[in-house]
Amino acid sequence: MTTYYTEDHEWIAVEGDTGTVGITNYAQGQLGDITYVELPAAGATVAKGDAPCVVDSVKAASDVYTPVSGEVAEVNEALADAPELVNTEAESGGWLFRVKLADPAELGALMDKAAYDAFVESL
């Protein structure tokens, strides 16, 4: 499994032809207490750069962009009752949705962990 990152603070962990998407620990810290997550419908088709998901914190609603194109294979149902998982386990149990990759070549434009950490450091 390889994890990639975006400049918009999403992560995508890829295994085979499926990627699991979430927001980074840095992002959840910036947003503060998450109170609601709007998830896409399973089966929906998304294109890289779309915002199929919205994360609501006490102070604002934030779009989450999909780092890749494809079909939504699964969404994290646990977030309906426990949106705070995005705070407590941003890069594990607080994942948002899984995408079946339409074009694995899109991953080439994303950052690896070292590059993302350096990017956050520069903010």
Binding site: I23, K59, A60, S62, Y65
Partner: peptide, 8 residues
């Protein structure tokens, strides 16, 4: 991800 902070 994008934020829309409201300012006064």
């Amino acid at each position: 991800m994008s934020e829309n902070f409201e300012t006064a």
